[in-house]
Amino acid sequence: MVAAHVALLCFSSCISFLSPPPHRLRFSFTRPKSFTVASMSEDPIREWILSEGKATQITGIRSIGGGCINRASRYDTDAGSFFVKTNRSVGPSMFEGEALGLGAMYETGSIRVPKPFKVGPLPTGGSYIIMEYIEFGASRGDQSALGRKLAEMHKAGKSGKGFGFDVDNTIGSTPQINTWTSDWIEFYGVHRLGYQLKLARQQYGDSLIYEKGQRLVKNMAPLFDGVVIEPCLLHGDLWSGNISSDKNGEPVILDPACYYGHSEAEFGMSWCAGFGGSFYNAYFEVMPKQPGFDQRMDLYMLYHYLNHYNLFGSGYRSSAMSIIDDYLRII
């Protein structure tokens, strides 16, 4: 588990947030076509902050860490502080997916997330995202409040299009395919487990895990007998590094890989999220537990173990294979 935690540090940009800028700032994320990518300029981040950001001066810029994917900075201004992530090698599409996810979660009015403001290309290559800066508290906050707020987001964030999302995004640095699909079992089998299994075969020539995994995909439908599945807005990558609290102790979640899916899929990273009994008790008060929940948990963890295998190597293969073999013995 120590090795797993170290590897997982690459998933996020070690983010801190300060107080939000004035409420007059607006950005709409209702549809991808409403997304305006910033024009190229010498410094598009500074240009946006001093125009649409309503600041007249930037009083300081500080690096606040980062990870193996993005760099993070705090911009202090006379209109408040902003949080900026940059990536010097990837175009705006990755941050567009993140911003759309943050915007969708923000619009539910449930759990707190940093409000996104702008995504654009950097003139020297790469891209950036500007968002609200939230001041973190001293701890990850109250587990029961996190469970309740997360359930409220799942309950409020619904889709009439089925399972998927308006854009493909990333889980870590792995592409996450979000093609709209009417059937959850098909969506999860093809665009989640199936995609990761194909990557494992392509990257490592791992035909064994591919073939066994495909057997599981083709025979997993009985695990969902008696379950009512509605498309719920999911954070999609909810591990401990993406969970915090603001200065008032309210839970905050960040760095999403959003899509609309079965609510239980949100717990696929529970092996590295630290959820306790109070979290689940509060969650199920709002979103009642469905039959077979415990039996499906490993199925949802399998997606993330496969992704870690594809991102970080063979250290995660045995966990993924063990889950597959256990299911193949019972289905």
Rank of each mutant, 00 (worst) to 15 (best):
A3K: 06
V6S: 12
L8M: 15
L8C: 12
L9G: 12
S12G: 11
F17Q: 08
F17S: 14
R26L: 10
R31A: 15
S34V: 07
T36Q: 13
A38Y: 10
A38I: 04
S39P: 00
M40Q: 07
S41R: 01
E42G: 07
D43R: 02
P44N: 01
E47T: 11
E47F: 01
I49K: 10
K54S: 14
K54I: 07
Q57I: 10
Q57W: 04
I58M: 05
R62F: 08
I69N: 03
G80C: 02
F82N: 03
F82H: 05
F83H: 13
R88C: 09
V90S: 06
G91C: 02
G101E: 01
T108D: 07
G109T: 05
S110M: 09
I111N: 03
R112Y: 07
V113G: 12
P116Q: 10
V119H: 10
L122W: 09
L122M: 15
T124G: 09
G126C: 01
S127V: 13
Y133R: 15
E135T: 15
S139L: 00
G141S: 08
D142R: 14
G147V: 15
G147P: 13
K149E: 14
K158N: 06
G160W: 00
K161V: 00
K161D: 05
G162T: 05
G164L: 04
G164H: 02
N169M: 02
G172I: 09
G172H: 12
T174Q: 15
T179I: 08
T179G: 11
I185G: 05
H191I: 02
H191T: 05
H191L: 09
G194T: 11
Y195T: 11
Q196V: 09
R201C: 09
G205A: 10
G205F: 09
I209S: 12
Y210W: 13
Y210M: 02
K212G: 08
G213M: 03
Q214I: 08
R215H: 04
N219H: 14
M220N: 10
F224T: 06
D225W: 02
D225Y: 04
G226Q: 02
V227K: 10
V227G: 03
V228T: 15
E230P: 01
P231C: 05
H235V: 06
G236R: 08
L238E: 04
K247V: 14
G249R: 06
L254W: 10
P256L: 02
A257M: 00
Y260M: 00
G261P: 00
G261S: 05
S263L: 00
S263K: 04
E264R: 05
E266H: 09
W271I: 04
N281F: 01
N281T: 14
A282T: 07
F284L: 01
F284T: 05
V286Y: 04
F293C: 02
D294Y: 10
Q295R: 13
R296K: 09
R296W: 03
D298E: 14
H304E: 06
Y305Q: 15
N310T: 07
F312S: 11
F312K: 08
F312P: 05
G313D: 05
S314G: 05
S318W: 07
S319T: 15
I323K: 07
I324H: 11
D325H: 02
D325C: 10
D325A: 08
D325M: 07
Y327D: 04
